[in-house]
């Protein structure tokens, strides 16, 4: 049971930005892809979700090949993405986002998930009837995460979930992701903010200019010196 990328090669605007990236995320664990701006993190996330067509390579979900499957079919297969640019529906309200996120679930199940999401983000229950294009950036990020959680995916990819969130809120999100992982969800965090993500991860990869340069498993990744060398120590350009 895992989400697997096999030799993914992809281009963006005619320039190859991923060169044969392979990684495997076990169900029920949290993994973390680290990399600087422009390393290919977002392209990797979009390839996994089916929003970007790779030139070569495969994405496998529990051994089922997802290649050629459109994004909405991958969602139905259990793979969900919180995209970096959020892709919210500006003219819909917060409550409508949650409802549409759980569109495949029964009403009682949707209500149960909504209660969980409101517990995680209390401000969203206060703003339930507000259009999301009137929310602040941080609140919009909460809606993006909440919408994905409402779908109760088996594998969840989050591209920069911390963008715009206060550190205390991000800590709450990571804690929630950890309990989701205990329930069996596989979670892939794609982050620049390495430390907070590493704290909850049991596997991590470093992406540098489209190549995976380091793959590490285990606990206490936060203090692993190899990340200092491979990523944290890299001068930002």
């Amino acid at each position: 049971m895992s989400l697997r990328a096999r030799e993914l090669t992809a281009a963006h605007g005619g320039v190859e930005v991923l060169h044969g990236v392979s990684l495997e995320l076990e169900a029920g664990t949290i993994g973390c892809v680290l990399g600087a701006n422009g390393a290919g993190k977002t392209t990797l996330a979009r390839c996994l979700a089916g929003l970007h067509l790779p030139h070569a390579g495969s994405v496998l979900l529990d051994e089922a090949c997802l290649d050629g499957l459109a994004a909405h079919r991958r969602v139905r297969a259990g793979l969900s993405l919180v995209p970096e640019n959020r892709c919210l529906f500006g003219s819909l309200t917060v409550a409508e986002h949650l409802a549409i996120g759980a569109r495949a679930a029964s009403p009682t199940e949707a209500a149960r998930r909504q209660a969980q999401v409101h517990e995680l983000f209390p401000v969203l229950s206060e703003r339930a009837r507000q259009r999301v294009d009137t929310l602040s950036g941080g609140q919009q990020q909460m809606v993006a995460v909440a919408r994905a959680l409402m779908g109760d995916p088996r594998y969840l990819v989050l591209d920069e979930p911390g963008l715009g969130l206060a550190p205390s809120i991000l800590a709450g999100v990571l804690e929630r992701l950890r309990s989701l992982a205990r329930e069996g969800t596989g979670i892939l965090l794609i982050e620049q903010n390495a430390r907070a993500a590493l704290r909850v991860s049991t596997s991590a990869w470093v992406l540098q200019r489209g190549h995976l340069t380091l793959a590490v498993e285990g606990s206490n990744l936060e203090n692993d010196p190899r990340f200092e060398d491979a990523y944290l120590g890299e001068p930002t350009q």
Partner: peptide, 9 residues
């Protein structure tokens, strides 16, 4: 894209 990400075709 957002629609596709919640399973809408």
């Amino acid at each position: 894209e957002g629609a596709a990400l919640v399973g809408i075709n």
